[in-house]
Design a protein around this nucleic acid. Sequence first.
DNA 1: CCTGAGCGC
Length: 157
Amino acid sequence: MAMAMRLPAIARAATEMASAPVGLRRLFCSNATNFSFLSPQANSETPARPQADPSTNLFVSGLSKRTTSEGLRTAFAQFGEVADAKVVTDRVSGYSCGYSKGFGFVRYATLEDSAKGIAGMDGKFLDGWVIFAEYARPREPYRPQNNMPPSPYGNRY
DNA sequence: CCTGAGCGC
């Protein structure tokens, strides 16, 4: 009869997990081999958190949901000339009119100002939340839709 | 949508 399918729940779970996608298995298994705390000699430049190269553009996270682009600009303008500041908003209730996603971008006029902006604002409070300021990675390339005009609103970098 | 790590249209 069907006696072979009488497996313990543990065995069935292990069988299913072995055939799961690797992205899902990483949540349960510990296949990682680069445990820096187990290999003290691997101190040489092993960035688990790759920092972006210095730029005039800053990525600011940890923002309050009530912080606006204007509030972001005002806070960072204490440490340099802010060329542009934008809080990323979700598209619930309209384009760029939704609620904040909790992070944003601040572009300074110069590299010196952006460095002072990080030093002055990283780890500080803004609207009751500890925010984190770091150099932003290059923005994902702008891909115009197939039949859309290339730049109706002007692309900023 | 008021959630809490992250990289924008």
